[in-house]
Computed example of a mutant assay.
Amino acid sequence: MQSQVHRSLVSADNALMQQSERNPDGWGVAYFLGGAPHVVKSVSTAVSDEMFRRVSGVVTSETVLAHVRKATQGQLNILDTHPFQYGSWVFVHNGNIAGFEQIREKLLERISPVMRRFILGNTDTEVLFYTLLSKMAERCDLERRGYPLEDLAAAARETVDSICELAGDICTEDGADPVTNTFLTFVITNGQTMLAHQGGKPLQCSTHKQHCPERDSCPYFAPECERKVEGGFVSHLVFSSEPLMGDNVWEPMQPRQMIGVDWRMQMQRF
Rank of each mutant, 00 (worst) to 15 (best):
Q2H: 08
H6S: 13
H6A: 04
D13W: 09
Q18P: 00
Q18A: 10
G28F: 01
V29K: 02
A30Q: 09
G35K: 05
V39W: 06
S48D: 13
D49Y: 03
E50T: 05
M51I: 12
M51P: 02
R53G: 12
S61E: 08
V64T: 07
L65I: 14
V68E: 05
K70Y: 09
T72R: 10
T72Q: 11
G74K: 03
G74Q: 02
N77I: 05
T81Y: 02
T81K: 12
H82W: 03
P83N: 04
F84D: 02
F84E: 02
G87H: 13
G87E: 06
F91I: 01
N94V: 08
G95D: 07
N96R: 13
A98N: 06
I103T: 04
R104S: 09
E105Q: 15
K106L: 10
L108V: 02
R110E: 15
M115T: 00
R117N: 04
I119V: 14
L120V: 15
G121N: 09
V127W: 00
L128T: 11
T131L: 14
L133G: 09
S134F: 08
A137I: 00
A137T: 03
C140Y: 08
E143P: 03
R145V: 11
R145C: 04
G146R: 07
Y147I: 04
L149A: 11
L149E: 02
D151V: 00
L152H: 00
L152A: 13
A153S: 15
A154L: 12
T159M: 13
L166F: 06
D169V: 15
C171G: 02
E173F: 03
D174M: 08
G175E: 08
P178I: 11
N181L: 09
N181K: 09
F183Q: 04
T185A: 11
I188C: 14
Q192M: 06
T193F: 09
M194S: 09
A196H: 08
A196G: 11
Q198N: 15
L203M: 13
L203T: 05
T207K: 08
T207M: 15
H208M: 07
Q210S: 06
Q210E: 14
C212R: 01
P219F: 11
Y220E: 06
A222E: 06
G231T: 15
G231H: 13
F233N: 01
L237E: 02
S241H: 00
L244M: 05
M245I: 01
M245H: 10
D247G: 07
Q254M: 10
P255F: 07
R256N: 07
Q257M: 12
I259C: 05
I259T: 12
G260N: 07
G260Q: 07
G260R: 15
V261F: 08
M265H: 14
M267G: 13
M267R: 10
Q268I: 10
Q268A: 14
R269G: 00
F270A: 03
